[in-house]
Structures are given as C-alpha cells and as structure tokens.
Design a protein around this nucleic acid. Sequence first.
RNA 1: GCCUAGGUAGUUUAGUGGUAAAACAAACCCUUGGUAAGGGUUAGACUACGAGUUCGAUUCUCGUCCUAGGCUCCA
Length: 583
Amino acid sequence: MDNKNLDSLRHSCAHLLAHAVKQLYPGALNAIGPAIENGFYQDFDMGKWSISEEDFQKIEAKMREILPRWQKFTFKEVTLVEAKKLFKDNKYKVEMAKEFAKQGKKLQTNDPGDFLDLCKMGHVENPSKELRNFKLLSVAGAYWRGSEKNKMLTRIYGTVWPSEKELKEHLIRLEEAKKRDHRKLGQDLDLFVFSDLVGKGLPLLTPKGATIKRILERFIVDEELKRGYSHVSTPPIAKVDLYRTSGHYPYYKETMYPPMVVDDEELILRPMTCPHHFALFKSRPRSYHEMPVSFAEISPQFRYEKSGELTGLIRVRTFLLSDAHIITPKEKAEEEIKKVLDLISFINKAFGLKAGKDYRFRLSLGDRKDSKKYYKDDKMWDYAESILRKVLKNQEVPYYEAENEAAFYGPKIDVQMKNVNGKEDTAFTVQYDFVMPKRFELRFINHEGKEEEPVVIHRASIGAFERTMAFLIEHYAGAFPLWLAPVQIAILPVSDKFKDYILKVEKTLKEAGLRIEVNQDNETLGKKIRKATLQKIPYMIIIGEKEVETEQCSVRTRDGKDLGQLTINQFISNLKSQIEKFL
RNA sequence: GCCUAGGUAGUUUAGUGGUAAAACAAACCCUUGGUAAGGGUUAGACUACGAGUUCGAUUCUCGUCCUAGGCUCCA
C-alpha cells in the first residue's frame, strides 16, 4: 500500500475513534485527527470527562461495534454558514471552518453513515472492511493548535494497518525498540545513572560510560587537529554582559541559568561558547594570512531546559559540546562549510551511520516575516540560505528544507537523527552567522590593509557527547564496535588455579592499550560467558590448563563464534588491525 | 511548565488497611568446573519525601520531588 492510501486508512481510523469517544463520553468534542507516521492521533476536548489508557479496551470495543455500519464515506461541499450551523456545538470545528474559509479553501463534510464531520482529507473506500486492524496506543495532552496559550486537549494515539499481520509486526517493532532504548541499556550495561539528589537532567557517567565519552572526545579532537582546527579552552562561566553583547541574552534568557551576583558583578553559566571564542579572536589584530581562524573546544554548557523536555541523555541540563567557530572571510565561507560537511560524513562513516537510513540533512531556514525571532536583514538571510543550499546540492546528499528552524543569527544545516521512539533530534549542526561579527565588531586586516568583517560558521562536529552517546547506544543496541566498547575483552579463567598466568595476560593486554575485565568469580565458565555476553563485551578469552601449557588463549566473540586458540600477540595484533580499520 | 500514567531491596517485578515476597546482582561456604545460568547460607527496603484520614497507611486523600509517553520548547 502506498503512503497516500496508508494516510487515508489512518485518517479514517481517527474518525472511527472520534465517533466512539463521542458516544461513550457525551459532551466530548473532537478536534483534529490526522494521519502520522505509523498511525494517527485524534484530539478531544473531554469536557467533564477524563481518559486514561485503562479506558482503551472499552473504546476499542465501541469502535468495533460501530465499524460494521460504516460502509462508505459520502462527501458534501458546504458553505461557511452551513458549516457553522452543522457544527454549532463544536467550537473547534467552527474555528477550523472559519480559518479554511478565510484561506479560500473549500469546506467539506463527510459521513460514513452515522457520523457527520468537517473534513477535507482522504478516506478509505470501504471502512468496514479496511479499518479492522487498529490498536490504541497512548493518551497525552496536547495544546489546541499547538500553542501553549491555548487549552490543553486530550490526544489519543493509535495505529492501524491494512492487515492483521502488519499490525502485529508493527507492535513487535515497538517492543523491540524499547529494548534498544538508551535509558534501559544505560542501566543494563552500567553506562550512566541519574540521582534525585544531584538533580534532573544531570547524568552521572559510570566508568564505562565515561570511557565511551573519552574515546569519542579523543577521536574528535585528534581528527579536528588533523583538519586544521585550533583547540582552545575557555571558562564555562562569564559575565552576563558578554551575552548582552552577543544578543543571546534577550533571545535565550528563559533557557539560561539565572545570574549569580559576585562582588557587584553578574556571572552566568554559559549556555553556548560562541562569545568566548569571539573574545579570544579579538584579543589581538588578525591578518588575512591567518584566516580563517577555527577555534574548537570540547565545551561544557548549561541550559535550563523545561522539566518536561528532558529525556535520558538526549535532552539534559548540562552537556559537553564538540563546539567550534570558524571565523572566515565571506568569500571562503562556502568552502569552509563544505569542509565541515566532509568532517561530518567522516564521523558518520566511522559510526557506520547511513544517510537516509540513520540520519538526514535538514536545511533550517528563517522566516523573513518574524523579526522577533530572527535578526532582520532579508538580503543577508537570502544570501546565507543560498550558500547552504548550494553546498548541500553539490554534496549530492539527500536533504529537506524546514522553515522557521534557523538560529536567530542565521540559517543552518542540521543532521537529524531518530531515536528508538521515532523522535528526531539534531545530532550535528552547521550554522551560518552574519550577525555576531557585527555585534562583536569582529575584524581582520585584508590584503588591501583595510579592516574587513568576517562571517562565522558555528558547528558541532560530533555534537553533544551525551546526545551522541544516546544515539550510538541505540544504533548499536549496546553492542559497541571494538574501538568504542568500554570493555573490549573479558578474561575468563576456567578455574582459580591459573592466577599467575592470568595476571601476565592481563598486563600484556593492558600495555597494548586494550580495555580488559577479568572475571575471577567463583562461578562456572558457562556462567562467566553468559555474563560477558549479556554485557555485550566483544571478545572473551578463556584461560585454563590447555592455554597455560601452550601459552595461548582461547577466543570467543559475543556472537558466540569460537575463534580457537591464539597466542596473546596474535590476538593483540588481530584486534589492533580491526581498530585501525575503523579509524 | 502543561496533560495522562507511575515510583516497593543495587536491578526487574509481586503483594496487602494490621510495619513486606521473589528472581537476578552482592558477601560467605561447598564445588575446581572447558564455551549462555552448579549447590547452599547470609545480608540487604523507615514501600520516593512530607502531611492528612484511621486504633493502625506501603495500601486511601492531598502536597512536594522524580520517572515515562505526549504537548510546548530545542541556540
């Protein structure tokens, strides 16, 4: 079934849900009910009622009771006056009717037999047959028309599929996704924890979690140094004036931590690194010879995200960003953006992430009409957006454009990744900024000996480490590739008689830079293997009498493959060549 | 922040208006075992926190904190 028909199926099911709920809860009003990816939702103003997931069984039964009567949707075009009259009891429908009429859209009602609704979308031909394979999934609050200022409605999410088999498969996929959830794996694999006492949105990384972070950090710093970045170190705290100069303060006051007053000075935990790097740039005059100047930093940042927005490691209140600011003459900006995209491709390749499947590029544009949210300079916006678009086109990568997603100082290219729940977040970002150079009076001396204003490219190559770790945990389902695995080798003695040899092996492997864990517990070999496998440790080496005699080790992988006996040196060079291939 | 649901040993869960049960993990003992769970013993919970109702609350009510799924937000 193609997407259009699937959408019709799902949207039709939202009607069925609306009808059932209205019958069960007199006075409930249905608002919008669109198809979404893998399902649909339907919003209700429940009036005096409230709904929880416990009510789903009852609602689903009602839907099945109604369904046989729904033979065919019939459509009818109506005028605004007629619509207002037909839906006089439903203010949401009336508001939509007015809105559509204002936009010059035709108003249409449809009726599957006993449920007249205002609606313009596609519907299935034969509802009673096609709508059988549905399931209600969750209930949530959602603001009417998506605005915090409006009333909160009750939203019911559901899914529907052309066949029972597809429905079952989808439900199994949802279950499987839960198993990959980085929050569950973070617990099971001992990577990070939260503490009520420390605070929400403030993750504590365990030794294993911190190891992954350290590997990523070293990986990206080394790679950036190779590519010509200068790594710097600036304080995670600064005077509020710095952010007043940058213009961040009024725009982002809500998400900054409140200022601390120390001796007549107001200090703030930094929510971003840009102004620090600009201050560094301005510390002395800059010549065109050294441009572009690329300051990179593994930078801790602090943002007061609203409590409901926090999710595991994906949205946190303090995080470490692989930040950089490329301060470049305008004519070199395009080339520099291209270089950043090359770096991002390199990173994605190292992780085995594929464009289109695991991530996608988004060209995030401004809105010329919204001068509150975006700095007003139409010409600069047009120019900056055209440059980013051009680079994306030349890279021949698939991308999509999104209005109203830019930073206040310019448009950006975002690398969007999906988490196991299907929610998309920005992993990496490249931003074109023509505002900060003005605000900070950034200048360099050009080859004519005159002062010239550069542009700034803000970019986060490997993103925020916490968030990137979350994506990677889910991407690998916890089975990290050798180079990233917090523990690479589990040494499993067959009994405790071989301590001396084990110590020797452990020392040799550690000296070779490998990450080891020895399981000396008084347990059977089978149990030790099980434990190491559940911890998703890539390699297990088993040492017993045979290995001690021949000075070898028996190697087994977490996938259950037996690689036989190897000398320690063979094993080391085997692993090392594997790691090198990745990097 | 808002809507809905939830919070019981380190973890996953059970349970009850009369101060809590199990599995795994832990510690110890027996076993010295060869490729996914050997056996036993012990310890571990002021049932998230605070208040109320009650003779008595882990259980009922309210508040606070935290978590999940959404919404809003996401530099």
